[in-house]
C-alpha cells in the first residue's frame, strides 16, 4: 500500500515558503553571530581603532599577545576560574539532583530554592555578594569575627579574590546543573535500579556504578555549556573587582573589553577574542574525544 511509505519517500516537495519562515531569524543570526565571528578574525589582522586610519598588520597582534604578560595572566586566571567553577558545580548539581529525584519531603521547595540563584540577574547577585564579602561591615567577616576568627579582605587580597568569585559562581550555577541532571535521571529506566537492589548492591555502589555512568552524556553536555559560559565571565568581575587587586581577577573577556572600549584598540581586542574562541572550541573538541573513548 502506498500509504505505508514514509512521507519522505513519497516525494520531495520543495516548499518555497520555508525560506520566508527562516529569513528573519537567519538575518539576525547572521548579524549577531556569524558576521561578527568572521569580522573578529579579519579585524585581528588589523590595527583598527577610532584614533587613526586602519592598516593591515599581519600577525603583529598575535605576536604581541604571546609576549603580553598581562594577557598571559588573564588566560591563567580564566583557566583557574573555569576549572574552579565547573567541577564543583557539576558535583553539587549531581548530588542535589540525585537527592531530589526521590520522594523527599518538600522536594519541589528544595528544587525551587536551588534554582533561585540561576534566576537572579548577574548584577544583582554580584552586588549582593560584594556586600557579603565587604571587608569591614560585611556579614561574612562579621560572622567570622563573632566566632573569634580573623576577618579577611575577600575581594581585596590578590590570593583570595579569584576564589571568592569562584564560590559565588558555583552558588549561581549549580541549580542549572541540578535541573539538567534531574532531566537525565528521569531517562534512566527504573528496572536497572530495581535489579541492582535485588542483587543487594549498597547505595554508594549503585550511585557510582549505575547513576554516574548512565548520566555520562548529560555530564558531557553540562561540561561543555559550563566551560563555554564560565570562560566568558565578565559581569561579576566588572561589578566586584574590576580585574583587581593587582590583576588577580583579570580574565580574558574583561581584558578584551578594556582593550577595545577603554583603550579603543579594536584590532588587538579582536585578536584576544579569536584566541578565546579557539580555546573554547579546543575544549569542546577534547571533551568530545574523551566522551567517544569512554563510549567505545
Amino acid at each position: 500500500m502506498a500509504f505505508e511509505q514514509k512521507p519522505k519517500e513519497v516525494s520531495f516537495q520543495q516548499n518555497w515558503s520555508a525560506y520566508a519562515f527562516l529569513a528573519p531569524a537567519l538575518v539576525i543570526l547572521f548579524m549577531s553571530l556569524l558576521l561578527p565571528a568572521a569580522a573578529t578574525l579579519v579585524m585581528s589582522f588589523t590595527d583598527v581603532s577610532f584614533l587613526h586610519p586602519t592598516n593591515w598588520v599581519g600577525f603583529d597582534n598575535y605576536i604581541k599577545l604571546l609576549a603580553d604578560e598581562k594577557f598571559g595572566q588573564a588566560v591563567a586566571n580564566t583557566i583557574h576560574y573555569t576549572l574552579g567553577v565547573t567541577f564543583p558545580t557539576m558535583a553539587l548539581g549531581m548530588l542535589a539532583a540525585v537527592a531530589l529525584n526521590r520522594k523527599v519531603p518538600g522536594r519541589i521547595a528544595f528544587r525551587t530554592i536551588f534554582y533561585l540563584p540561576v534566576l537572579t540577574s548577574l548584577i544583582a547577585a554580584a552586588v549582593v555578594w560584594a556586600y557579603l564579602y565587604e571587608p569591614y561591615a560585611g556579614p561574612l567577616n562579621n560572622a567570622l569575627a563573632g566566632l573569634g576568627l580573623t576577618p579577611r579582605p575577600w575581594l581585596q587580597d590578590p590570593s583570595l579574590a579569584l576564589n571568592s568569585l569562584i564560590v559565588m559562581a558555583i552558588w549561581r550555577d549549580f541549580g542549572t546543573a541540578m535541573i539538567i541532571y534531574l532531566a537525565g535521571l528521569q531517562d534512566i529506566p527504573n528496572d536497572v535500579y530495581e535489579a541492582a537492589r535485588l542483587d543487594g548492591a549498597p547505595p554508594h555502589k549503585i550511585f557510582f556504578r549505575i547513576t554516574v555512568p548512565m548520566l555520562s552524556s548529560v555530564t558531557f553536555y553540562l561540561l561543555i555549556i559550563l566551560i563555554v559560559q564560565t570562560f566568558q565571565v565578565f559581569g561579576a568581575i566588572y561589578v566586584m573587582t574590576q580585574g583587581g587587586p593587582l590583576g588577580s581577577t583579570e580574565t580574558v573577556v574583561y581584558q578584551m573589553y578594556q582593550t577595545a572600549f577603554a583603550h579603543t584598540e579594536f584590532g588587538y581586542g579582536a585578536a584576544m577574542s579569536t584566541v578565546l574562541f579557539l580555546t573554547i572550541l579546543a575544549f569542546s573538541l577534547i571533551g568530545t574525544r574523551i566522551m567517544k573513548r569512554k563510549d567505545g
Binding site: W16, L22, S32, L276, I280
Partner: peptide
C-alpha cells in the same frame, strides 16, 4: 517543511549554539 538546504541550515543553527556570544562584543 521540505526545502533545499534544510540540513545545512540546521547544522548552522547547532554550530552557532557553540559560539561564545560575549567574545563577539567588539564586532
Amino acid at each position: 517543511m521540505q526545502f533545499a538546504g534544510r540540513n545545512i541550515v540546521f547544522a548552522l543553527v547547532v554550530g552557532l549554539l557553540m559560539v561564545p556570544a560575549q567574545s563577539q562584543i567588539v564586532p
